[in-house]
Every structure is written in structure tokens, then in C-alpha cells.
Design a protein around this nucleic acid. Structure first.
Lengths: 335, 335
DNA sequence: TTGAAAGCGCTACCAC
DNA sequence: GTGGTAGCGCTTTCAA
């Protein structure tokens, strides 16, 4: 079932059939409708692979995420998908496992499949290494500010968000605030820590390194961090976690130790994945517009406007207050 | 950067270069290593698109899910991805939105991109309509038992799982058990309802249609269903929900009405998505091997063994007991 | 307005 | 062992 059959059936050459189907070039209106009708009857579907080979470019967007299982990413993919679909594009999904070799492998795939563009979420390669792998691909980096000429990224305002989160807690009277931080090799984790610190400084609260725990973005990491926290007799009344998942893990640990959230301890997360509103009490968190991040990234990739190279966007965030934060009690907890 | 350059650089024909790179046909060992070395130095990546056109088939697996945002699907995709990756395949992801037109559109994409196979999760087309769309594609239907010759599906034991869930509740002394059911147009929802009923019959508990609420697999549906339940003065001590998300939604409603789970009401879900172990108390549920479902499906697709057509598999499930189920109290609740 | 033919990058058939 | 060449299905010059 190729364009050949359609052409034969309509008594025209493949050239004419192609033109009729794509609406390119001069063609008699009658011929066009006739060919289209035939194509329709035959249920003709153009072979996208052949077209790609000819055009040197496919109507496919590559999506590279470390782990589709982390609820943040499906929401992101959903956003990308929306605008991709509007433009007749489809998504090529490759896992990077957050490892350099994974990235390289996935990127090679994208290359050899001639995707129209790639949105990449990663932070394990440094700028120049990443740039090298990305060579020749149109791309948008997500949640990572690449310091390269011609590079495009879209990111939330992580620093501002973290600052707002901490300020929310401070406004509630908290002074001893723990930060469950992400790996400092990761840009967004660093930014969130910086925002956190900035808020404390602004409020004249002395920084206490004992109060920052380095973990990662997972539930288990948050759980372990909270456990560690509880073991040492650290005095604190609130926790700001680098990610919702980590916050939820911490809450699990508190629950097991019969500490009430928010009565004994206030908790704030970051991301506002759907999950944040499912848990009880609902998690107070910094809302990223996750799907929008994806939409913007895909839009940048598909937008063929010239002079759009090197554009980047940072999206605003806001804290959404749910049930895990409360005014600090006068009688401190956990000593 | 084509095979041409490699061939020139190594002073061989493209034929020889191709053979060296693919390890097909007779070739001198020396030549092979030389070509490979050159390819390596040049960073040659075969153009997968051209190869696809030639071979009439791509090393790509299509994945059609209704909504990547539902946590069940990323886990599934993860499983598919694992075996796809092992075989050098990549995933083409298309959303169906659970609508016939979405399915048709996505399937057409898969067709024209010549995917090696498709795993499809859907239940809004009847068997023959689906068969028509699937025509010419190698496919595995997931969580849906297609009654077609030559069709392949993989599914969990939904009926058995639901029965076990109900029996778990019955074993705890519950008699007035509500089932938040899924849309009866959906096979797995029907099977789960059937399993539920079967358990009651076996235990000589009269079926009470007042106790089954039709909702769907979402959190909100579960929430609304539970609200409806609470409004009418229905007497019940336990809820079995068609999906974890629905169970969690119901728990949210109970929480808002100051009903304690599991003290006042026991709750059982279905799926065992990660989320089930994140919520407090942990959700007792029927565990599907979600990633394994994906692995098996992908395996069936990539397995080129002859005579494997029409094979299908159903995977076992088990109930995992966490914190949302308890022995019924003598003093009933909510009347 | 239409058609013949080249060629996208690759593999595989056939000849040497 | 190696190389010329056809051809996958399509789009697009260039002629007619």
C-alpha cells in the first residue's frame, strides 16, 4: 500500500499523487480531489519512514528522562505530548537512568533516528560533555541552565521557590528548619538549597549546617533522612524537603515515630506532583507548572521561527498551602 | 557522516563497510577491524531511518496508553522499556486518551512508522473494531483478553485478585462490604466486580446492589463515590476499590468525615502502584506485577520464535496487607 | 498542469 | 573476499 498504488488507481504519476496528497506545487483541483478520494478509499497511509529519509528529518520528538517511574516525569511527558500531538509529532522515549552512559546511548539513538528535537532532563554530565553529545541535535534542556551559546533551556524558578517555601515556614514562627537537600551535583538541588539559605539569612536566622541533610529526590531518601534526623537529638520544628517524594518519605518516618504533622512538625515539599494532594494531610509544597514546562519545551523545539535559538524560559512557581504546615508550638519538639 | 565516508576512509566499498559493521557475510578479519576502527574514529552512527526503510521494519516498539499520568502506566512503560532496551529497541509513545479516535490516530502513526510491534492498553473499542485498526501490526493487548484468533494478550488475574481481596475482608469479619467499581464497559472492571461477587457468594453473604458504586479508576472518582456513599445512610464496614487511586480518593473522603481507616472502615485497593505504600496508613491492596506485565508483553513482541502467535499469558496477583484493613468492630459504623 | 527520474543512506543480491 | 548496483517509498528538481 504505497503512493504507487494510489497513483495507479487514480491514473496519475506518483509525482502528481504526492503533490495532491501534500498540497504542494501546482495541480488541477479536480486531480487533487480525485487522488485524495482514491487514497481515502484505499486507506492509504504515507510511509513516514521513507518520508523521513527523504527529508532528513522525522516528525518525532525525543524525550530523555532519567526514570519514567518518578511521578514528576509522566506529568512532564504529558505536557510535551500535548503540543507534539497538535503538530502531528510523536514521542520517542528513552531512559537515561541518570547515568552518563545511559545519556550517551539514548542520545545516539535520537541522532540515528533523526528526531526533530530532543527534550532532555539530566544533570550528570557537565555542560561541555553534554554539549558534545548533543552536537547536531536541536534540543531543549529541562530544569537545567546550560551555559552554552545557542543553548536553550526551560526551568522553574527553583531558587525563588525554595526561598518562598522557607519564608512560609518562617512566617509561621519556625526557626529550627531542617532542609532535606538533594545531591549537590544536581543544579536544581543546589538552587533550592541556596534559596533556602537565602530566606534564613534574610530573616536573620543563623545557618546551622547540622540542619541540612543531603539525600535525593526519592521517597526512600526522604524516609532515611528523617530517620537519621530523629536519631540524633536534633531540635527542629519544620522540614523543607527538596522534593515532594522526599517530603512524603519523611512524613512516613515521622508517622512511625508517632510525631504528628503538622502539630509536632511542619513539612513543605517541592514540585506539587499529583501525589501531594492525595496524601493525608495534603502536602504543602512549591508548585511547579510541570505540564507547562513540557509544553513550553516542546513549543520551543517545534517553533521554527528563526532567531529563536538560544531562547530560554524560566517559569514561576508558587507555594500551595495544604495541611502539613502549621504555626509553631511554643513548646519545642524532639529533643 | 554516512557509511560512505567510512568506506572511503577505509578504502573499501560501502558493501564491505556495511558487512564489516554488521558482521554479515564473508569478510577478512583484518578488513573488518580496520573498518570498525575507522567508523569508531569518525564517530559513525548508522542512519536508522535508512536502515528501516530498507528492512521494512524499525527497531521501535509502539506503546499506546490512555494516559501516562496515571501512575499505573509509567510502571508498565518502565517494564517494557527494560526489555526493549536490552534488544536495542526504543519506545514510540502515543497517547490514546482512551477514545476511539485517539486509538485510531495513534495506531495509524505506528503503522506509518513501521514499528516492530505495539503494546496497547485500551478498552474502548470492541474486539472486531480493534482488530481492524490493528491489522498488519504485530501487537500485544494488555489487560484485555481479545477473543480473536492469532491475538496475543497479557493480563493479570483480575477476577482471582478481586476475589482474594474480598475474602481478605470477609476473613476479617466484614459482611457489609462496598465495592467501588470501574466502568462496566471495561473488561478488567467487570472481572474485578465478578471476583468480588464470587467471594461474597462463596461466603454466603447476600449480594446487595446498594453496595456497589460505579466510578472509574481515578482518585477523584473514588473520592466522589465515597462521598455519595456517606450521604446515603448506608451501613458498611469495608470498601474494596477497583483501583488504588480510587481507594486513596475514598480514604480522603473518609478522612474529611473524621472516619478512621482502618478503625472505622477497612479499605482495599487494586494494583499496588508505588503510591500505595507511600500513603499513611499504607494501603492494603492486590498487587499486580506491573513492570513484569510490561516485560512479558515486550518479550512476546520481540520474540521471533515461530509458533508463538496467539500465545497469551495471565500473571498471578497477591494481596499485600498493609495498614488499611482491620478486624471489624462489633459496633457497626455509619448508619 | 503533469511526469520521468534522481537520490535520501542503507543492505543484499549477484558477479568477479 | 570484495565491489557494483538495485531498490526500499517518498519528495522534488527539471523537462515536457
Amino acid at each position: 500500500m504505497g503512493i504507487r498504488e494510489v497513483a495507479d488507481m487514480a491514473n496519475v504519476s506518483v509525482t502528481t499523487a504526492s503533490r495532491a496528497l501534500n498540497g504542494t506545487g501546482r495541480i488541477a483541483a479536480g486531480t487533487r480531489t480525485r487522488v485524495k478520494k482514491v487514497a481515502d478509499e484505499l486507506g492509504y497511509q504515507p510511509n513516514e519512514v521513507a518520508r523521513q529519509l527523504k527529508e532528513g528529518m522525522s516528525s518525532t520528538l525525543g524525550v530523555l528522562v532519567p526514570d519514567i517511574t518518578n511521578p514528576f516525569f509522566p506529568e512532564l511527558v504529558h505536557g510535551i505530548q500535548e503540543v507534539a500531538e497538535e503538530n502531528g509529532h510523536v514521542l520517542l522515549l528513552a531512559p537515561t537512568n541518570g547515568e552518563p552512559t545511559g545519556i550517551a546511548k539514548a542520545l545516539r539513538q535520537m541522532h540515528s533516528r533523526q528526531v526533530a528535537g530532543v527534550v532532555i532532563v539530566d544533570d550528570c554530565l557537565d555542560d561541555s560533555a553534554l554539549a558534545k553529545e548533543l552536537d547536531g541535535l536541536k534540543y531543549v534542556a529541562l530544569d537545567r541552565k546550560l551555559h552554552l551559546s545557542q543553548s536553550t533551556w526551560v526551568s522553574s524558578d527553583h531558587l525563588g521557590g525554595a526561598q518562598m517555601a522557607a519564608e512560609h515556614l518562617i512566617g509561621l514562627g519556625h526557626r529550627r528548619i531542617v532542609h532535606i537537600a538533594g545531591p549537590q551535583g544536581i543544579g536544581v538541588a543546589r538552587e533550592r538549597l541556596a534559596g533556602f539559605r537565602q530566606a534564613l539569612e534574610l530573616a536573620d536566622i543563623p545557618l546551622d549546617d547540622e540542619l541540612v541533610f543531603y539525600a535525593d529526590f526519592t521517597e526512600d531518601a526522604g524516609y532515611q533522612a528523617a530517620l537519621g534526623l530523629l536519631e540524633r537529638d536534633i531540635c527542629f520544628t519544620a522540614v523543607f524537603a527538596v522534593a515532594d517524594l522526599a517530603a512524603i518519605g519523611a512524613m512516613r518516618a515521622f508517622d512511625e515515630h508517632h510525631l504528628d504533622v503538622p502539630k509536632d512538625i511542619s513539612v513543605v515539599g517541592f514540585d506539587d506532583i499529583h501525589l501531594a494532594s492525595y496524601v493525608r494531610p495534603g502536602l504543602t509544597t512549591v508548585k511547579q507548572q510541570i505540564a507547562e514546562l513540557g509544553r513550553v519545551a516542546a513549543g520551543l523545539l517545534l517553533d521554527s521561527d528563526p532567531g529563536t535559538e538560544g531562547r530560554s524560559r524560566t517559569l514561576p512557581v508558587e507555594v500551595v498551602t495544604r495541611g502539613t504546615t502549621a504555626r509553631v508550638r511554643q513548646s519545642e519538639v524532639s529533643t
